[in-house]
Amino acid sequence: MRGRGALSNPANRFAPTHRELDAEAALYDGESSDRIATVQINERPKSIISRNRSPDVPFAQSINPYRGCEHGCIYCFARPSHAYWDLSPGLDFETHIICKTHAAEQLEQELRAKNYRCQPITLGANTDPYQPLEQQRRTTRELLEVMLRFRQPVTIITKGALITRDLDLLAELARQQLCSVMISMTTLDPQLKRTLEPRAAGPSTRLTAIRELTDAGVPVGVLLAPLIPMINDAELEAIVEASASAGARSAGYIFIRLPHEVKVLFREWLDQHYPDRAEHVMSLIRQSRGGREYDSRFGNRMRGEGPFADLIEQRFRLALNRYGLSRREGLQLRTDLFSVPPQAGDQLALFR
């Protein structure tokens, strides 16, 4: 499908039945189009801030304005979450996007709660807050406007160049040490990008975004995620160098993760685009996952283990030293500036 990452739409792991589309029936039913339109599904959440206790994740609070992601990255570890809405982690994940309405209003309500304790909030922990739909929905921008008013610290993870639209808000947040950004860089090869993450910004566009954010005073790091054996791992040093030249201050990486349905979708992608090395890629992944295609243990799931994973770690450490970047450990943002702004009716309460 043009502009889409997944090659199929398999039933999710909870579905009681599985459907296979016959080629002739598809032609008759008009389902053979090589394009699929994006479907927007509105959802009004009862809460907007998610809490996290995973020991290998560097944040305790996060907000995901969207469920599903139009970027269509074939490797996305968040794909299996679409199963909870009885949708496929395949094409459904990138074509049926659940958009959280009234998100800024809900965030303000939660920040005003008497029991709220200020900690940084991460935008983009699961799906990208600057995916294409954000251009019209503007949910992420509205959330940032609330955070600026409350002086709530925020970190952002994205591969979307649309983030530069919000430079005015990000620059002011950064001036008060309330903001940092991680730009996800997977490859410097535009051709690989087109199949690996079809609707994400191109490599040069992301590097330009790093420069613009840096010039505006926003602390920027780069996240090499994921590193895939025999697909993009050879670019590790080049990505670090290019990111440092663009102004990145820090870097981190994540070894490819293939939970649940992602392993099937990723293997389909390999067989289609890299049939000559597909088995070698999967063999190296298994070697780095204790003989399995995925290891969910905390600590191991992000880095892998064994000789190949150790080599990646050594190369990454040397690249950081060579190009003067620090390791991504999470920039210390200020929480002492947090303040609940007055709202209509606050003064009248003094006389009751």
Results as ranks from 00 to 15, higher is better:
Leu87Trp: 03
Tyr116Ala: 07
Ala83Cys: 03
Thr140Pro: 06
Val146Asp: 01
Ala125Asp: 12
Tyr75Arg: 05
Thr122Trp: 04
Ala104Thr: 06
Ile121Ala: 00
Leu107Pro: 03
Gln106Glu: 13
Glu145Leu: 12
Pro129Leu: 13
Tyr84Val: 10
Ile97Lys: 00
Leu87Phe: 09
Asp86Met: 13
Glu142Leu: 13
Glu108Trp: 03
Glu142Pro: 03
Gln131Leu: 12
Ala78Phe: 07
Glu108Thr: 06
Asn126Val: 15
Cys118His: 14
Cys99Val: 15
Tyr75Gly: 02
Glu110Gly: 06
Arg138Gln: 15
Leu123Met: 10
Arg117Cys: 12
Arg137Val: 11
Tyr130Leu: 14
His96Gly: 00
Leu148Glu: 13
Phe93Ala: 13
Arg112His: 09
Leu111Gly: 06
Pro132Thr: 07
Thr122Pro: 01
Asn126Cys: 15
Lys100Val: 06
His96Asn: 12
Phe93Asn: 01
Ala83Asn: 00
Asp92Leu: 00
Ile74Asp: 01
Arg112Ile: 13
Leu111Pro: 01
Phe150Trp: 10
Gln119Met: 14
Gln136Phe: 08
Ser81Cys: 09
Ile97Val: 13
Tyr130Val: 08
Met147Val: 05
Cys118Thr: 13
Leu123Arg: 02
His82Asn: 09
Glu134Asp: 14
Ala125Trp: 05
Val146Ile: 15
Leu133Glu: 11
His102Leu: 11
Gly90Ser: 09
Ser81Asn: 12
Ala83Tyr: 01
Leu133Asp: 07
Thr95Ile: 07
Cys76Gly: 06
Asn115Ser: 14
Tyr84Ala: 15
Pro129Trp: 12
Ile97Asn: 00
Leu143Gln: 06
Arg137Met: 09
Leu148Ile: 04
Pro89Thr: 07
Pro80Tyr: 10
Lys100Ser: 09
Asn115Leu: 09
Gln119Trp: 05
